[in-house]
Design a protein around this nucleic acid. Structure first.
Lengths: 219, 219
DNA sequence: TGTACATCAGTGAACGCGCGTTCACTGATGTAC
DNA sequence: TGTACATCAGTGAACGCGCGTTCACTGATGTAC
C-alpha cells in the first residue's frame, strides 16, 4: 500500500531484510519478468522467483495462493498495458477513424516490444486463473477497444447487418498485430525474413503492414 | 524403416513388447502430441511420453539424444506440413496470384487446426535445436513459399525497388494467419470475440480476414 | 544353408536435483481504550 | 501518551514427487563367409 517506503531500509541491495517486505507483490512481479526474460517461459519457477526477490521459498504461495495467482496478476497487467496504450493512441490520433485503428495496432506491437516477458506471460501458454476478476476485466477491456474502433469505421451503429464483417475486421486486426508481435518476440522474423534488427525498421515494417490491412478493411 | 510391420506383434494393445520397438520414432512423436493435446505445453515431459509409448524411461533420450531432439523432429514435421499444404493450395488455385495467396493463407490456418499440439511445438516456446538440419530446411521451405508468392503478386522480378514492400506484405500475410491460428488454438477468440465455435464459421472468418488483407496488398 | 560375430536399439536401475505447497511458527503492524 | 491485543505478512523446515540423463547391460538383427 505504501508506494514509497519512508524508512531507512528501502534498498534491496542492503542485506537488511525486513520481516514484512513492504511490497512483495511488486517484487515478485519484477523478479518473475526478469526470470522469464532471461530463461524463457520454460525456465520459470516459483522458487527461483522468490530467490531473486530475496524472500523465502514459501512467500509467493503465501501471497498469491498458487503459481497461477502470480502469473494471472502479471497477465492482468499485460492486458491493462495494452488497453491503456491503445486508448492513449486512439486519443492522440483523434479524428480519422482509420488513423485511429492504425495507431491502436501500432500501440499493441509497441507494448509487446517494451516488455516481452509480460507479453509472453499474457499470451504464452502459462497456467492462468481465468476466475481472477482483474484478469478478466482487463482482457475484455482491451478487446473491447479494438472492436469498438472497427465498428466505428464500418459505420455500424448497432442496427446494421454487417455485424459479421465487423467481427472479421476486428479479428483480422487483432490477428495481424498479435501474430507480428509473437513472431518478432520469438525471433522467427529474424530467422526467416530479411533483417528486422534495427528497432526503427521494425516499427516501420509494422506500420506498412497495418496500412495494408486497413487499406483492405476500408474497401 | 519397415513402414508396415509384417509380423504378428504389430498391435500396441497387445502387451507383447518386443525388445526392438520397430518404430520408436513414430511412437514417441505420436505420444508426445497426444500428451500435449491433453495436458498442454507445460504438461509435457519426456518420461510421460515414454510411458505412453510403452517404452523405458531412457528410450527417448537414447533415440533422440535429448528432449530438444524429439521436439525438433516434431517441429520439422510441423513446418513440413505447412509447406506441403501451402504448395498444394498454390497448385489448386493456379492462375490468379492473389487467389493463390488467399489459398496459401487458408492452408496455413487449416494445418494449425488439424494438429494443434504439433503447431504448438513448432511455434510455442519449447526448446528446439536449430542446428537440426531437417528443422532448418523445412522452416525455410515454408517461409520461402509465402515470400515467393508475394513477390509474384507485386511483379517483383528481382530488379525492382519495391523490395521492402514485398517484405512487408510477406510478413503481413504470415502475421495474420499466424496470429489467427495462435489466438484460435489458445481459445482467445472464443473468450473475447463472438462465438466462432462451429468449425464452418471459423474457416469462413479466416477467409474474410484474408480477403481484407489481400485487398489491401493489391492496392 | 548354417554359423560367428559386429552392430544396433532399447533396458532398467540409479544419479542428483529442484520443484510447489503445507504447516506451525514468529515478528511486525495498527487499532482500541 | 502508553499499553494490550488481534491481525496480518512472511518464515523455514519438511512433505512427497517426478524429472532428464547416465551407464553398464542385453536381446535382436543382419552380414560375411
Amino acid at each position: 500500500m505504501c508506494a514509497s517506503s519512508s524508512d531507512e531500509h528501502n534498498s534491496d541491495t542492503e542485506k537488511t531484510r525486513r520481516y514484512h517486505h513492504g511490497d512483495l507483490r511488486q517484487a515478485l512481479i519484477r523478479s518473475a519478468e526478469a526470470l522469464i526474460a532471461e530463461k524463457g517461459i520454460a525456465g520459470f519457477t516459483l522458487r527461483e522467483c522468490a530467490r531473486r526477490a530475496g524472500v523465502s521459498p514459501s512467500a509467493p504461495s503465501h501471497h498469491f495462493g498458487h503459481v497461477a495467482g502470480l502469473l494471472s496478476a502479471i497477465a492482468a497487467l499485460g492486458f491493462s498495458d495494452i488497453a491503456t496504450a491503445m486508448e492513449h493512441a486512439q486519443d492522440q490520433a483523434q479524428g480519422n477513424a482509420l488513423d485511429e485503428l492504425q495507431a491502436i495496432g501500432e500501440a499493441y506491437i509497441t507494448v509487446a516490444m517494451m516488455n516481452p516477458p509480460r507479453f509472453r506471460i499474457t499470451f504464452g501458454q502459462m497456467p492462468l486463473d481465468w476466475n481472477n476478476p482483474e484478469l478478466l476485466h482487463e482482457a475484455q477491456r482491451a478487446f473491447g477497444i479494438l472492436e469498438r474502433q472497427v465498428r466505428t469505421i464500418r459505420g455500424d451503429s448497432g442496427a446494421g447487418d454487417p455485424v459479421l464483417d465487423t467481427q472479421a475486421a476486428s479479428v483480422a486486426a487483432w490477428s495481424i498485430v498479435h501474430g507480428f508481435s509473437t513472431l518478432l518476440l520469438d525471433g522467427r522474423l529474424n530467422r526467416f525474413s530479411v533483417d528486422v534488427d534495427p528497432e526503427k525498421s521494425v516499427k516501420n515494417l509494422a506500420q506498412k503492414m497495418l496500412k495494408m490491412l486497413i487499406n483492405g478493411i476500408e474497401n
